[in-house]
Amino acid sequence: MATQTLNPGNSNTEAGAPGRLRIRGTRAGRQFTAGPYTYLILAITTVVAVFPLYYTMIIASHTNHEMAQVPPPFLPNSSMFHNIRLALHEQPLLKAIVNSLIVSGCTAIGTVLFCTLSGFAFAKLRFRGSRALLALTIATMAIPPQLGVIPLFLLIAKLHWVNHLQSVVLPTLVSAFGVFFMRQYLTNAIPTEILEAGWVDGASTFRIFRSIVVPIARPAMAVLGMLTFLASWNDFFWPLLALTSRNPTVQVGLAGLGSGYIPQQAVIMGGTLLGTFPVLVVFALLGRQIVGGIMQGAVKG
């Protein structure tokens, strides 16, 4: 798979902060310092990246009538709570937020747990067929799950799970990316000698997992948890099929808002603001860690 070719001969790079520091150290010699044009282009890109989100707030805080002015307003106004109230009236968005918290929380916890277990086994345990199984895991990353929705739908219909949250949680409980991510991290982060010492002392594999592996794996588990939570919160296609507007996730609720009979842009943006901004604020606060996680996963996965 393409992912295997991605490891450009730096498998001895240590994972986590020490590794990044080391790279930065060797790089400093050749690194150019940014000139004014670099800052200018990056500033423009930042504006393009963030402006649509800012403008969501502008639309959500005006009435439709005010938005029709020329030139259009660029500063927030006072109608935000009114618009959000109207959005809540049209779609059960508060229920959707609770549902999304449940779904994303369960998915993140399950994925982190299962992926840490598998990642540990692939990184440190020797067992027959481990190479083939790892290759299989990596290969599954290229499989588009969206194309299997029809049998999945038949399955949950048979189980009478349509419109129940478990139909959204269960299919996404594992991730091949997560297994690979944890394996790469644990391969480098855990000295094999520690595990052997535990083994000699007569600790069971699970005891070793609990007392040695999990504490060391914690930073990577946190990053994987955040990425999984975000992906699950933003997932749309399968929840749209498995749930209805009576018991939606945030994305299903917002989609219902956007395709109403009389599209009211201020109301739609009010709902979008409500369903999107809490996550974006958390994302911005944890941004440094998430950026680090994506970049680590990129070099190695």
């Binding site: 940014a34 956007g258 941004g287």
Partner: peptide, 26 residues
């Protein structure tokens, strides 16, 4: 090498954190 590298990286990742539904509606 620059000032505010983390700021730029996080800002550029904000659209990725926005759901496809929200982005399309916006």
């Amino acid at each position: 090498k620059m000032r505010g590298r983390t700021f730029f990286r996080v800002a550029m990742l904000m659209p990725y954190a926005t759901s496809v539904v929200a982005a399309t509606l916006i």
